Computed example of a mutant assay.
Amino acid sequence: MDRRLQIVLDAHDPRAVGAFWAEVLGYVEDPPPEGFATWQDTLRAWGLPEERWNDAYAIVDPEGVGPRLFLQKVPEGKTVKNRLHLDVGLPGVPTRRGGPPDRDGIRARAAQLEVLGATRVREVDDEQQGYWIVLQDPEGNEFCLV
């Protein structure tokens, strides 16, 4: 897997937010290092105290195409709008802006993600720019469903 690009998100609960993003992106938990059956075995062998096992969490594209998403625990909460956000397409549909939007598909996917903990911020329908829905993950990080 190409590691030139890794996206890092700060989180209060890396494992929970990582599970949300795994569902959004169709990703899976990053497998433990060779020689270990589970991350718990790995962290125990490394001597990391159990209360620190949720300090970080990573998910990966099972096809090895997309970037790794690494979530790291931070003490502070999100206070301002993201300076960077992800545009996420519908499962099985390439992510792009332009062309005829699948409004019904995007709305249906947004509703699914809301059940998982996303918050809908706004719907944008602009003749020039296209159609998308702005959402926030369970910890307030914005992303666009396109």
Score class of each variant (00 low, 15 high):
residue 117 G to A: 02
residue 82 N to Q: 15
residue 25 L to T: 09
residue 61 D to S: 03
residue 99 G to Q: 04
residue 88 V to S: 02
residue 104 D to H: 14
residue 61 D to R: 04
residue 127 E to C: 12
residue 7 I to R: 06
residue 21 W to Y: 14
residue 94 P to Y: 00
residue 110 A to S: 02
residue 47 G to H: 00
residue 134 V to A: 07
residue 67 P to V: 13
residue 74 V to K: 14
residue 130 G to M: 02
residue 6 Q to W: 08
residue 63 E to L: 13
residue 145 L to C: 04
residue 34 E to V: 05
residue 51 E to A: 12
residue 41 D to E: 14
residue 116 L to P: 00
residue 139 E to G: 02
residue 9 L to F: 15
residue 71 L to N: 03
residue 57 Y to I: 02
residue 60 V to S: 04
residue 60 V to R: 04
residue 116 L to D: 00
residue 55 D to F: 05
residue 31 P to G: 08
residue 93 V to A: 07
residue 91 P to F: 02
residue 138 P to R: 00
residue 61 D to K: 01
residue 98 G to I: 06
residue 54 N to K: 10
residue 52 R to N: 13
residue 63 E to I: 08
residue 5 L to K: 11
residue 109 R to W: 07
residue 75 P to T: 05
residue 39 W to S: 08
residue 47 G to M: 02
residue 49 P to I: 06
residue 24 V to T: 09
residue 95 T to E: 10
residue 80 V to Q: 13
residue 13 D to G: 07
residue 71 L to S: 05
residue 132 W to T: 02
residue 26 G to E: 10
residue 120 R to P: 02
residue 82 N to C: 13
residue 134 V to E: 11
residue 123 E to N: 00
residue 70 F to P: 00
residue 132 W to S: 03
residue 56 A to Y: 10
residue 110 A to G: 01
residue 39 W to N: 11
residue 108 A to W: 03
residue 43 L to G: 10
residue 144 C to N: 08
residue 68 R to Q: 15
